[in-house]
Design a protein around this nucleic acid. Structure first.
Length: 190
DNA sequence: AAGCACATCAACCGCCAGGCG
DNA sequence: TCGCCTGGCGGTTGATGTGCT
């Protein structure tokens, strides 16, 4: 026996949301606010499960979403936060107003990963992909991307050493403007 | 123009933690 | 204390778009 489903699967729509469904969801939340997701679909006249409604609202319909391409600053912020937090997309998203965890996760998997690999950086560990490149004396033999990777790797060690002598994390060390207070609060309070 | 491969991203799934009776 | 319920999260899927041959 598997776990019980989150809702009555036979009577719910799945897949892409229609314009009418979006409008119903927006109208309901505008009138009643974000309440109990489980009971929302029935109250809003939607044949969807609560989870689906929540996801649609959080990731697509919320009025405070930024949409559009990520800026270079956001790129670097994501990379730095990921190096500290790993795949904690919700925590990373909390540092980027108007962005959702799903959006950042997708962006990471489609763009940032490749960007780091092209720099010779392992996207999971944020360290040099090729161990041979770790020797700074080899720099003259490297391409630009490889050189950047070596600098990053050397920088990583320097930062790690610096952290030992201060209470400051590497992201704060490199980007003092980044707020690393990871306590949870509504996005408008950041 | 057609067919294929690859990229993108919205949406789903299953798991987990925390609240509550 | 225990078990159920719900919300939230990260991983994954699949439909659609885009570029190339």
């Amino acid at each position: 026996m598997g776990r019980s489903p989150c809702c009555e699967k036979e009577h719910t729509n799945k897949g892409a949301w229609t314009k009418e469904e979006d409008e119903r969801l927006i109208k309901h939340i505008k009138q009643h606010g974000e309440g109990c997701w489980r009971s929302l679909p029935k109250a809003a006249g939607l044949l969807r499960c609560g989870k689906s409604c929540r996801l649609r609202w959080i990731n697509y319909l919320r009025p405070d979403l930024k949409r559009g391409n990520f800026t270079e600053e956001e790129d670097e912020l994501i990379i730095n936060l990921h190096s500290l937090l790993g795949n904690k997309w919700s925590l990373i998203a909390a540092r980027l107003p108007g962005r959702t965890d799903n959006e950042i996760k997708n962006y990471w998997n489609t763009h940032v990963k490749r960007k780091l690999i092209s720099r010779g950086i392992d996207p999971q560990t944020h360290r040099c992909l090729n161990a041979n490149n770790k020797n700074p004396r080899n720099v003259s033999m490297q391409t630009d991307d490889e050189t950047i990777a070596i600098r990053n790797d050397v920088g990583f060690k320097v930062i790690a050493a610096a952290e030992e002598y201060s209470n400051c994390s590497s992201v704060e060390f490199l980007h003092p403007q980044i707020n690393l207070d990871l306590s949870i609060r509504p996005p408008h309070l950041y």
